[in-house]
Design a protein around this nucleic acid. Structure first.
Lengths: 203, 203
DNA sequence: CGCTCGATTGATAGTGATCAATCCGAGTGG
DNA sequence: CCACTCGGATTGATCACTATCAATCGAGCG
């Protein structure tokens, strides 16, 4: 929660597909998703896109080491985004011990998540990646069984290092195994345990 | 440099292959490599290993969000390792603004590196991964053209999400293209530009 | 000397990318 | 209102890349 740490601007409203900042833009602000979803992505020289992460309500993004963003950030669907000057955060972190602690633990947690994602990218099969992805999304969107994925198959593919066709096939494979049901972009988890068994990466 | 930030213990000497800490151990210390090389790795339930990173002289490792290590850390070759209580670091960071800034920028930089590695894992071919790996190692071991890789092909494979055989084949492919020369585990870069062209992931 | 481990190379199989066609829903303009 | 279009999703066919299985070779070591 950014507001606990620094004064935030009133949330700005975006439509789906809007660009919040572009690769190489100056990284002077930090953002928090109030509602909706945001993705951060990087484009390689050869046009290959990598989606670094999806951010939902309560998530913070836009913090980067150098002066410039290494990723672009776009809304996946209509969203409201609060922002805060980076210098403000830094000043507050220096002055207020609680803010510093919160920020520090947040940084560590995102490093941890990046590590888990690296495991997934390095070693999991397509179906395992999708199973993990669905469990991750269900948890982050705090949905029990049924939830709507706002992002396209292309977004999922670029997040998991797959092609969109393979993402489709993995969905149908899970559906054929009766682990999930799908209806457009909304997913119902039928057998949580079955998905968990496929997500065998966590130690 | 850990010593600038907190009192460190005198460096401990390890042989190659020693375990510094194991997965699930309590994460009460932070470490700095003084000499040699360390790898951090995670084992999945099914035995698949993922090497999260290699650390050389000057690198810090062992900092994790929860109380327990999610990775194990082992020496790749004989090494000297300094350590420091985590609580000490935290106390110093609270008290000294310069320490806090240094630590913070260090955290952000490692997040950035993790992001770059995710791109590599997600989208690069085997030869591209090896090309990038060699450039990364040449830079981090501050070697100009010729350097010895202390880690095995298995370590490299688990770092890049490949099999050891594929790593071997990628090395011979690069050798056949006259981009590198190899002699056991030591590598000579013959055409830096050729390798850079393969490493087309950075934006 | 024989052992084991790591590296390399070959042969084969499997997984996912790519090319291609179809289908569907939403938006658009006649 | 309906034909039209367009992007996303799905499925099929084929191909490329890498994993896997297997054999060999060499170095280090008891």
């Amino acid at each position: 929660m950014l507001a606990r740490m620094a004064p935030v601007s009133p949330p700005a409203a975006f439509a789906g597909g809007d660009t919040i900042y572009a690769q190489e833009d100056a990284a002077d602000f930090i953002y928090e998703v109030i509602e909706g979803m945001v993705r951060t992505a990087r484009l390689g020289m050869d046009g290959r896109r990598i989606v670094h992460g999806f951010f939902v309500a309560g998530d913070i993004f836009g913090l980067e080491p150098n002066g410039a963003h290494s990723c672009s950030a776009e809304t996946v669907c209509a969203a409201r985004i609060a922002s805060c000057e980076r210098s403000q955060i830094e000043r507050r972190a220096m002055a207020d011990r609680a803010v510093a602690t919160e920020f520090w633990s947040w940084l560590l947690k995102s490093a941890e998540q990046a590590g888990a994602h690296m495991c997934l990218l390095a070693r999991a099969t397509a179906v395992e990646k999708i199973a993990h992805f669905l469990l991750e999304m269900a948890e982050r969107m705090s949905a029990n069984r049924r939830f709507a994925l706002p992002m396209s198959r292309y977004d999922i593919a670029d997040y998991l290092g797959l092609s969109s066709e393979t993402v489709s096939r993995a969905f149908t494979a899970l559906r054929d195994r009766q682990l999930i049901a799908t209806e457009g972009r909304s997913v119902t988890i039928l057998k949580l345990e079955g998905l968990r068994r496929l997500d065998g990466l966590a130690a």
